[in-house]
Design a protein around this nucleic acid. Structure first.
Lengths: 247, 247
DNA sequence: ACCTGAACACCGTTCAAGT
DNA sequence: ACCTGAACACCGTTCAAGT
């Protein structure tokens, strides 16, 4: 499976070294400013040389960097034993990984597949947990999709990047705008009633990304809601019901 | 509030017209290939002229296009009357909007704010629904964050774009890779047992985006799980509990 | 107020050439 | 096998100039 079976001598340019420094560049520069030329500079080589190690070009390299950021998120424990704990662990680990690599969040949040190897252990784990929870067949697949989307969803939004240029000015003007609208009791009574809990601490109403101002309790609620929902929705999908009737 | 109070004569270049054609370009070209120069071409003007109408540059224009794609998602009904129905409607409308503008999904899925006006009606509605559901104070804020993340999460992943170049070759090779791994009963027994339900129809294991192969039943399950969870988690946040004890 | 036009610095990628 | 080096087509943005 390994693409190259060579001894990687010290100081040599490896595919792995390219991917690692790519993730490093992504962390430093952000997704927009990330460039092949910068990666090449970082590893001390001409831009075009990268292509030999990473044929996928910029997108391929980003995909591999994202996959690297994802390494270690799959819990080691047995998913069948305590499926709730396993899934909760998975959610926590995914968010923690995105916390370490916030600029990879948008990448993983909107990608068909991590291009450099499908994370099959993760898939297997989720399926095992959901089977233990009582899901099977089409309902299992649907629940699996729900879990993956949920795992990815919160962190993607939480770590969404601030605009690159004039961050402070942008934050200041957005802040005053939000703090004004949020007290418009005439048009938005519920919002006004909860202005203090919400301004600067809620999606769409905040002016800092999750790296600077984490949404810990929001995430805790999110996971709670989702796990309880998985419990409650078990065996109640409309399709499953009609099938049970038919057979 | 409106930025310009002018009569927009026929054929004139308006800010709105620029944003509308920008969304059009985004739909046609995708996020990566989207360029100011192409938008300028489409409206028949020099690239630098756009900057007069849209000072935000490329990112600003994209943000406004995304906001336009989002118009009409907030349900008109009373969120306090039947909060479950209202939220379900919201989820459906958001996904439908992203179905119409798949390339805007990634944009909205990873953005702090839609830059050209915060969607306050949506915020107000969600807060009202959650208050009706029994959430208040910090727990209300947390639940709000959970709802927004959930609303955005599924569609962002479902409509994640396929690679721009060599789509067919990519799909074919990924397909064979997935179909092989998925039957590796030794390493992934649960996966192998559910290979038929899952291959090509589940996140990370599919080779088509949601525009070509919608994940309808997965989305239905997702919404179901989340709404049931909101029901069950009500008034059970750890903080709320300790507060109830203290006072 | 609204748009043209040239110029700048920076991209990703291709392709030939070196060793 | 692995990397250099030049070249190409395309960017977003700035800034002066037109009307």
């Amino acid at each position: 499976m390994a693409r190259t079976m060579r001894k990687p001598r010290r100081g040599e340019l490896t595919r792995d070294r390219v991917v690692a420094t790519a993730l490093d560049c992504l962390d430093r520069l952000g997704l927009e400013a990330f460039s092949m030329r910068e990666v090449a500079r970082a590893v001390g080589v001409f831009p075009t040389a990268l292509r030999w190690h990473v044929p996928g070009g910029r997108n391929g390299l980003l995909a591999e960097a994202a996959a690297l950021a994802l390494s270690g998120v799959t819990p080691e424990g047995d998913a069948a034993k305590d499926w709730r704990a396993w899934l909760r662990d998975l959610f926590d680990r995914y968010r923690a990984a995105m916390r370490r690599h916030p600029n990879a969040a948008a990448l993983l949040g909107a990608q068909l597949v991590s291009n450099g190897g499908v994370p099959l252990a993760l898939v297997e784990g989720v399926l095992t947990a959901l089977e233990a929870a009582g899901y099977q067949g089409d309902a299992l697949r649907d629940a699996y999709n729900a879990v993956i989307a949920a795992m990815v969803g919160f962190a993607t939004l939480e770590f969404a990047p601030e605009p690159a240029e004039d961050r402070d000015g942008w934050a200041a003007s957005l802040r005053t705008h939000v703090e004004a609208s949020v007290r418009d009791a005439g048009r938005y009574p519920t919002l006004a009633r909860n202005a203090n809990q919400v301004a600067g601490q809620a999606f769409v109403l905040r002016w800092q990304t999750g790296s600077a101002a984490p949404l810990d309790s929001g995430f805790a609620c999110y996971v709670d809601v989702f796990l309880r929902g998985l419990d409650a929705a078990r065996g109640s999908s409309s399709k499953a019901k009609t099938r049970d009737v038919l057979f």
